[in-house]
Design a protein around this nucleic acid. Sequence first.
DNA 1: TGTACATCAGTGAACGCGCGTTCACTGATGTAC
DNA 2: TGTACATCAGTGAACGCGCGTTCACTGATGTAC
Lengths: 203, 203
Amino acid sequence: MSQSGTYHHGDLRAACLRAARELLEEDGSAGLSLRAVARRAGVSPTAPYRHYADRESLVSAVAAEGYRELAAHLTAAHPAPSTPDDLAAVAVAYVQFAIEHPALFRAMFAEPCDPTSAERVAATAVITEYVQGIVRDAFPGADDADALATTVWALVHGLAFLHLDGKLDSSTPEVVADQVRASVHALFSVAPALSQAAASAEQ
Amino acid sequence: MSQSGTYHHGDLRAACLRAARELLEEDGSAGLSLRAVARRAGVSPTAPYRHYADRESLVSAVAAEGYRELAAHLTAAHPAPSTPDDLAAVAVAYVQFAIEHPALFRAMFAEPCDPTSAERVAATAVITEYVQGIVRDAFPGADDADALATTVWALVHGLAFLHLDGKLDSSTPEVVADQVRASVHALFSVAPALSQAAASAEQ
DNA sequence: TGTACATCAGTGAACGCGCGTTCACTGATGTAC
DNA sequence: TGTACATCAGTGAACGCGCGTTCACTGATGTAC
């Protein structure tokens, strides 16, 4: 066991990630600083530079972790959604995740995304493909499943952010869930109409 | 004419607002600082304190102005929308506004909103009521017009933020507009189904 | 098993920065007489 | 019309802060012989 000593940490990289997450969970405001993370990890202000090139790469790592957790949270809500009801359950999980981890969610989306971070790009792609996959499975007949997937994502994402920014009634989880379900159902009870509308918008 | 001199400014309050807006338009990143605003207004770092209690009240004033402009931009898109097509045009205007003024839009929504600022609260209410009014006019028969309005707002708001955060294809205004129109149409071609879905979600 | 040494993962002092905010001040304005 | 004075709207020095990042360093680890 090498991490019993105080000097060599053992796994400072992971500890930084954990510290960053703790700070985000505790303080709703998203400002994540390298120094604060180091402090929380019980290490000198410059130690994280052994593991992260700069502040941004730490934030990217945190965001990537957030995407992975979000994906896990969604699949946990329903492993293989195939009906509008299933899909609504996944949508509720999305908004719930944002409300439960507001600072993390903000870090994932509001911080400028650097295209350099392959880890982050990959994690984002997972979400996109996941949503597209669901929509394709649930509506095999849809002409433009990708556009439909974008619509769902935007709807749910918008609900999440409006809740985060205090623009909607978030008093109880049930109120939130009902709104999300109602919105998704409204959208999905007419899925085939989408591609039709998209086509008519072209002209 | 008193503003010819350099000492007394004339209307520093308005000048600060203008300076803040310029800074937001120039630099996509939202960090608005009192000192930078003062600098831009050509005034000492502490002069703005004559007109704003602190940084937050400046930001609130900027946000309120943003809400008012957004409202104007929406009504300009269509003065009295009554069909799904009209409504889609307004939705396009919303997303367009966000894309054209990303930093302002972020300041309006992402910054923590202080309930103290009556000006800001009022400006937000205007947007909400505006959207609700449109939905009520366009769908007089809808059982729960407010829930429907929230759904529209969330959809459009989500599209706006996903574009801002580089998660969707924003290559040309036309691509964006088509997506927005398609999404709104999909939602609205079945408006009456919403309240029904909401009711079934309750059980 | 023991020693020499390269490598690795931390430390801690220091840099320059921009920030929000306070304070005592001073120059300009406008009003009362 | 002219003067005295209150008020108003700025100035500028100063405070303490936390930040990202650099640098030369040192203690711990592990490998080669």
